[in-house]
Amino acid sequence: MNDDNLASQLSTFVDMFNAGTIFLLFFCIFVLWLINWLIRHMMGRVMTRFPSRRFAVMQLTTLLSFVLYIIGAIVLVVGVLRPPQEFLIAIGGSAAVAVGFALKDVAASLISGLILLFDRPFQVGDRVTFDNVYGEIMAITLRTVRLRTLDDNIVTIPNSRFITDVVASGNLGAMDMMVVTDFHLALDADIQQAQDIARQVIVTSRFAYLKKPVTFAIEEVQVAERLAIRLRAKAYVLDVDYEKAFQSDVTVRTSALFRERGVLRPAG
């Protein structure tokens, strides 16, 4: 009887994965991929046309991809494979244990992806720091988060790591973001003059977002085993894409004005 059951189950399995079903399965997977590619392509054109709304568009694209793949997977199993109830009952328990054990990390990442989507500790387009990696969130997929560093490297991180580890978001969905720029001065430098110069440079930068305040923090620090004054300028860039351009602009012009106006720097 057991042999008959085994033969019946094998026959059912073979019938499920006949040539026609396999072709249809791969065709449907290709269609899912194509639909997802078309959605991302169209959303990319929308972002190009409306750059100020690109964060919202990127987040909508991520949500649509989630929904597409989840619904698509259900349709493939129910509509294409159509496994009989007896077959599911016969192998469901052992298969669930085996697949669950093999895919526990994937399952954890999938669940974590849903948590990230609704809890939103960060969003697509945010500038974040995670495990000494800093960059922009490019995509939140079912299993991973893709982050592009400022050196244009793509870092792929499992979703589950963001649930347990600390992540810092610099803008949390906003277009503007605070950018911190440090300048080091000699102990006997005119700090007020240096601060005025830095403020002048910041407010005249084409990348500055002036609806938010420009602030400074001043403290003594050790530079090359010598005490110095650190002048830390805190200002907002109008678009996170201009972060490094803004910081470079402020650094270059401020340093030039320090030399021109005789602001003392730490001895080399």
Rank of each mutant, 00 (worst) to 15 (best):
A107H: 14
V97T: 02
G93Q: 12
T129G: 05
L117A: 06
F101M: 06
F130H: 06
A102W: 10
G92I: 08
G113C: 01
A96E: 04
G125M: 00
V106Y: 08
N132F: 08
V128H: 02
A108G: 04
G135T: 00
F118I: 04
G135W: 01
F130Y: 10
I137H: 00
L110D: 14
Y134G: 04
D119L: 14
G135P: 05
K104M: 13
V124K: 00
L116R: 02
V124W: 03
D131Y: 13
V97K: 05
Y134R: 14
A90D: 12
A95K: 06
A98W: 13
L103W: 14
L110H: 10
D126H: 02
F122T: 11
K104N: 10
L110T: 15
F101S: 05
V128R: 01
V106I: 06
I111H: 06
R127T: 07
E86Q: 04
F87Y: 10
L88P: 02
A96W: 11
L110K: 00
L114S: 13
D119W: 15
V106A: 05
A90M: 05
S94K: 02
V99T: 14
R127P: 02
L88W: 02
I111N: 01
D126F: 10
S112G: 12
I115S: 00
L110E: 13
I89E: 12
F87A: 09
R127D: 08
I91N: 10
